[in-house]
Amino acid sequence: MSIYTQNRIKAHNELATKGWTIKFRPWTVIYTETFDNKKDAIEREKQLKSAKGRIFVRSILKT
Rank of each mutant, 00 (worst) to 15 (best):
R58S: 05
K23E: 13
G19Y: 00
R54M: 13
K18T: 09
S50V: 08
K52A: 11
D40Q: 13
K38V: 11
G53I: 05
T34P: 06
S59G: 04
K46P: 03
K52V: 06
T21G: 02
A11M: 12
E43A: 15
R58I: 00
D36N: 15
G19S: 01
K39D: 15
T5K: 08
K23H: 08
I30A: 15
W27L: 00
G53M: 03
T28D: 10
H12L: 14
E14I: 02
N37I: 09
Q6S: 08
N7M: 06
N37D: 13
K39C: 06
S59Y: 00
R44G: 07
Q6G: 10
G53T: 06
A16F: 06
I3K: 14
N7V: 03
H12C: 08
I55Y: 05
L15Y: 10
L15C: 02
K10Y: 14
S59I: 00
V57W: 02
M1R: 07
V29W: 11
K49F: 04
V57A: 01
K52H: 07
K39N: 13
I42K: 15
A11G: 06
G19F: 02
K18A: 04
R44W: 13
I55Q: 05
R44A: 09
A41V: 10
L61D: 12
K18P: 00
V29G: 08
T28K: 15
W20F: 06
R8V: 06
R44L: 08
I9S: 06
K38Y: 09
E14W: 03
L48A: 08
P26M: 09
S59A: 08
D36C: 11
A41F: 01
L48Y: 05
L15G: 03
P26C: 08
F56W: 01
I30Q: 10
T17C: 03
E45T: 11
Y4W: 02
E43P: 09
I3Y: 11
K49V: 07
R44Y: 15
I60A: 09
K18Y: 07
R8H: 02
T63I: 14
L48F: 09
Y4F: 10
L61T: 08
T21H: 01
M1D: 01
K49P: 00
K46Y: 06
I3M: 12
K38F: 14
K52T: 11
K52P: 01
D36Y: 11
A16P: 04
T63G: 07
E14V: 04
D36E: 13
S59M: 01
F35I: 14
T32L: 10
Q6H: 10
K23G: 06
E33W: 06
F56P: 05
Y4S: 15
N13E: 05
L48W: 04
T21W: 04
S2Q: 02
E43R: 14
R25V: 01
D40A: 13
I30R: 13
L48H: 08
T17D: 04
I9H: 08
K39Q: 14
I9C: 05
S59L: 08
K10P: 09
F56N: 07
F24Y: 14
R25N: 03
W20D: 03
K52D: 09
P26W: 01
K10N: 14
G19M: 00
K23F: 10
